[in-house]
Amino acid sequence: MSTLGQKTLAVAITQLGVEEIPKNSNAGPAVEKYLKSVGLGKGYAWCMAFVYWCTKEASLQLAIANPLTKTAGVLAMLNFEKDLVVKEPQPGDIFIMDFGKGQGHTGIVEKVDKNIIHTIEGNTNDDGSREGYKVCRRIRSKSTIKAYLRL
């Protein structure tokens, strides 16, 4: 696991339980902090903003440059960062899901167990929605993932 990936995962863990205020608003102090990190205000989907913010915080702690492009777009991030794509995930990697019609979802891999990844995600919920209201742990099948980015 890369040092930046380890630190990004550690930052993400500190955000577990953060929720939108009010629920289902894409707003609230923490959510708006994530969105601001990519240049957006409240009201936008924030799963990629969450990942970007975690990586930015980890980069600051390590005194290195954040390698990610400043975007809230999941599929845009994949297109910008093709050089970071890896085939097999490991903890600290960023996963990318593609639901078609430009809709995606992302989060950070916490653990890999055969064909399953354990993740920490923003803008999800206990049902695994790509438009949820909190930061939480999820379990996903590797077969649902389009790509992984290694920091």
Results as ranks from 00 to 15, higher is better:
S2K: 13
L4I: 11
L4T: 10
G5C: 09
Q6C: 00
L9V: 07
A10H: 07
A10I: 01
A12N: 11
A12V: 11
A12S: 14
I13F: 13
Q15G: 03
Q15V: 06
Q15H: 15
V18R: 15
V18L: 14
E19H: 14
E19I: 15
I21G: 00
P22W: 14
K23N: 02
N24V: 03
S25V: 13
N26F: 14
A27F: 01
A27P: 09
G28N: 06
P29G: 07
Y34Q: 01
L35P: 01
V38Y: 00
G41Y: 06
Y44A: 08
W46A: 07
W46I: 07
C47A: 14
A49I: 07
V51D: 11
W53Y: 13
E57N: 13
A58T: 05
S59E: 04
S59P: 10
L60H: 11
Q61L: 12
L62Q: 02
L62K: 04
A63M: 10
A63Q: 13
A65T: 13
A65Q: 11
A65G: 04
N66K: 06
P67V: 12
P67L: 12
P67M: 12
L68D: 08
L68P: 07
T69Y: 14
K70V: 13
T71V: 03
G73S: 14
G73V: 04
V74H: 10
V74R: 09
V74D: 11
A76N: 13
L78S: 03
N79T: 07
F80A: 13
F80L: 05
F80R: 13
F80W: 10
F80V: 02
V85I: 11
V86P: 05
V86Y: 09
V86Q: 05
E88Y: 08
E88C: 00
Q90W: 01
D93L: 00
D93F: 00
I94P: 01
F95T: 03
F95P: 03
F95W: 05
I96F: 01
I96D: 01
M97S: 06
M97I: 12
M97E: 13
